[in-house]
Computed example of a mutant assay.
Amino acid sequence: MSTPAPKPAPAPKRRADAVRNRQLALDAAMALLAEPDRALTVEAIAARAGLGAATVVRAFGGKDALLDAAIARLLEPVVRRARDLLAEAAPYDALCTFLRELVAFQTAHHAASDQLGGLDLPATTALRADLVAAVEEMLDGARRDGRIRSDLDPALATSLIGATALAVARAEPSSPGLTDAYLTVLLDGLRSPAASPSARGT
Rank of each mutant, 00 (worst) to 15 (best):
L156R: 11
D140Y: 10
R144C: 15
E172Q: 12
D188W: 12
A142Y: 07
A194R: 05
T179R: 06
L139R: 01
L131A: 05
I161Q: 07
D140G: 08
L152G: 14
A171M: 14
A194V: 03
T179Y: 01
S150D: 15
T179H: 05
S196D: 13
A142N: 04
D130Q: 13
D151K: 04
A157D: 04
P193Y: 04
S175Q: 10
S150K: 09
P176T: 02
I161L: 13
L166F: 11
R170T: 05
L190C: 08
A155H: 13
V135P: 01
T158G: 05
E136T: 06
L131P: 02
E136A: 05
T184E: 14
S196Y: 07
P197D: 03
R143A: 15
S192P: 05
V132R: 08
T158R: 04
E137A: 14
D153Y: 00
A133P: 03
L156T: 14
A169S: 07
M138H: 11
L131C: 10
P154C: 12
T164K: 12
D153Q: 08
A129S: 14
L152E: 13
G177P: 10
A134N: 07
D145C: 09
A181P: 10
S175T: 10
A167Q: 06
D153M: 02
P173S: 00
D151S: 08
R191Q: 08
R147W: 05
S174I: 09
A129G: 14
L139E: 12
L183A: 11
L152V: 15
R144D: 10
L131E: 09
A133Y: 09
I161F: 01
G162N: 08
P176L: 03
G162V: 07
A157E: 03
R128W: 09
A194K: 01
I161E: 08
L152R: 09
E172G: 09
L127R: 14
G189E: 05
D145R: 12
E172L: 10
P197L: 00
G189H: 07
P154D: 12
S159L: 09
G141E: 03
I161C: 12
R170P: 05
V135G: 02
R170E: 06
T158I: 04
R143M: 15
A194P: 00
D188I: 08
S159C: 09
G146M: 04
